[in-house]
């Protein structure tokens, strides 16, 4: 028996919005520690890794490890049927081929339930090597989204260059070029408004704007984003979900021909 109760269904809504354009379907691996998802997009250019801790749920029960193959488009349809502050419960029997999703309003005057068919997905688990990243940049997630959106007007590729002075985002294309430089914030009122850089070695890598913009769909989940980079390895774009867990996106860099 698997059962998880979330006080704000809006959180799961935002999570699905953050992954549905990269993945059509995904396996949700449930265990007593929580729910995990790891999947690459069809082109094997990016990977989504999500972890929701059991302690982040109002109630969480998972008697036996359970892998649920979910069509994300179907789940998005169901999530459209609830309000952000509805309480939701997801439930499945062991070896079930369906998942039940229930919503209740806070005053419990409206209850609804939806049953969704589960899928058998061939899933490959990837080993992601432990990496000591040369640069770790923490910045407001809205600022990162703004930069990706603005610069993708000019070119398909975004160069991210991190030095101890700051981080520079650059692109160029038919109409010209664009650069945005952010320096480390010296003073800030709130931690989430600052830009901080931990750097052991300068790094400069090129990434596809299209994917970065898709990762930015996670912006509503977190005020901060963490970018981790090392030479010639995938970029990690991480959004912490308050009290619940995190979503990490990995993106293979573009390579000089």
């Amino acid at each position: 028996m698997f059962e998880a109760r979330l006080l704000k269904s809006g959180q799961l809504k935002k999570i699905l919005e953050a992954i549905k354009e990269l993945l059509k379907e995904a396996t949700f691996d449930c265990s007593d520690s929580g729910i995990q998802l790891q999947a690459m997009d069809d082109a094997h250019v990016s990977l989504v890794s999500m972890c929701l801790k059991s302690t982040g749920f109002d109630k969480f029960r998972c008697d036996r490890n359970l892998s649920m193959g979910i069509n994300l488009e179907s789940m998005v349809k169901i999530m459209k049927c609830c309000s952000n502050d509805d309480i939701m419960t997801i439930k499945a029997q062991d070896n079930a081929d369906t998942l039940t999703i229930m919503f209740e309003t806070k005053n419990q005057e409206k209850m609804s339930d939806y049953e969704m068919k589960l899928m058998n997905l061939d899933q490959e688990h990837l080993g992601i090597p432990e990496t000591n990243y040369s640069c770790i940049i923490k910045m407001p997630s809205s600022e990162f989204a703004r930069i990706c959106r603005d610069l993708s007007q000019f070119g398909d590729s975004l160069v991210i260059a991190c030095t101890k002075e700051g981080v520079k985002f650059s692109t160029s294309g038919d109409i010209g070029s664009a650069n945005v430089k952010l320096s480390q914030t010296s003073t800030f009122d709130k931690e989430e408004e600052g830009v901080t850089i931990e750097m052991t070695q300068a790094v400069c890598l090129t990434f596809a704007c299209r994917y970065l913009n898709l990762f930015c769909k996670a912006t509503p989940l977190s005020t901060q984003v963490i970018l981790s980079m090392s030479g010639d390895v995938p970029l990690v774009v991480e959004y912490q979900i308050e009290e619940l867990g995190c979503i990490r996106y990995y993106l293979a860099p573009k390579i000089e021909e």
Binding site: S46, G127, A252, I255
Partner: peptide, 14 residues
């Protein structure tokens, strides 16, 4: 020019 890398060359299937 640049070409898009793939993750398969970085991560291994467990």
């Amino acid at each position: 020019g640049t070409t898009q890398g793939r993750l398969d060359s970085f991560f291994t299937v467990i």
